[in-house]
Each structure stands twice: as C-alpha cells, then as structure tokens.
Amino acid sequence: MKVAIVRFPGSNCDADALHALRRDVGVDADYVWQTETSLAGFDAVWVPGGFSYGDYLRCGAMAARAPIMSAVRDFAGRGGLVIGVCNGFQVLCESGLLPGALVRNVKQRFICQDVQLEPATRRGPWMAGVDRTITLPIAHGEGRFVCAPETLKELQDNDQIAFRYASENVNGSTEAIAGVMNAAGNVLGLMPHPERATRDLVGGTDGLLLLQALKMVRTG
C-alpha cells in the first residue's frame, strides 16, 4: 500500500502527510511532483495543504491544471482513493473532482484552531471508520464552502456530505460543511487536517480514525 503525495510549488503540508502516513498510520507514501503524468505503483492519492502556486488567481486554480491532475482524474475515475486536505480540497474542487468551491472565511480572518467535526455519513471507504465526533485542527483563510442550491440538494440526496463543523460554523460554510465526497465516495475533500492529529504529542489522534481507511485499500 503506497500513497502518492502530490506536490506543487507552494505545497507545505506534504511532509506532515508523509510522516503521519509512514510513522503513525503505518502505510508507505512518497512524493510525486506536479509535472509527472503517471501514478503507476500507487494505491491512493493525497493532495496536501499549503498555498499551491501562491494562491494565484484563485486558491487551487493553477494546481488543478497541472499535468499530474489528469492522472489523478483517471485514478479517481477508476475508483481509486483520493483525499484533498485544505488547499488540496480547493484543488479538487477547482479540478472538478469535487463539487462546490471554497471562498474567503466570513469573518475575513485566517483561522487556526481545533474544531469539532461531526461525521454526516458513514458511507464509502473514507467515512466507514468515523463513528463519532472528532477533533481536528484547521488553518485556513479561504475555507467557506459554497455551492449552488441545486448542487447542495444533490449533495444531500446522494449522501455526499462527509463532515460538518459541530460546535460552531467557524468559517461560515453553507450548511456548516467541512468536507464533501464525490458521488462514488472514493474522493474526499476536507478543510481540517487529519495528518496533524495522528499522535498525542501533537494534541490528538482523531485523524487516525479517518486515515485508517488507507489500511483497508486492496493493493496491486
């Protein structure tokens, strides 16, 4: 089991993801530079947080058009597990792999704090193991999830909402949405950082509840 951590210029949660996966989750992982065109040899894809391309034009807009994203799109189309965290979530929305968009937080502030997250479903490989409210850190200025009313209805009808902010809707997201999946459930995007909550030393291990999904992946 090997996870591809896709790196763009400006990615900055790539090393956190690599260490959390290798040392705490217990799966192999390696970096894949954005100009690569193949994901051969990998069993899952992680699009990490950061400020890819300096957030030029819109958060995630440039990264979504990088060469590796065609391979990510094919990989997701074949049912492969893909996760986008924070800027990675923005990249997946910009690339059309996930619905909606992420815009400036309502209160205009960059928010860096722990949040309570309530799983909105247990559907799909990512959410199967998340059986309770979890605490993960967030760190973003543009994490307010928005989408058209008809898209929201689709998300609800297809059970695509993964997480909601539980205690307070910190960034003003539509329906307090913190994470969404594609219709098939194999692609997940979320603003909170599970890779920053995989050992007690850094304040908690709730991220493991979500990331254990990667241990269930059938390889080869």
């Binding site: 819109r58 929305c93 968009a101 989408c147």
Partner: peptide, 8 residues
C-alpha cells in the same frame, strides 16, 4: 475554463 470559476 480558467480565468473565472463558474461556481462562484
């Protein structure tokens, strides 16, 4: 395709 995001 790029300069604007039709979602927002």
């Amino acid at each position: 395709d790029l300069l604007a995001n039709p979602v927002i």
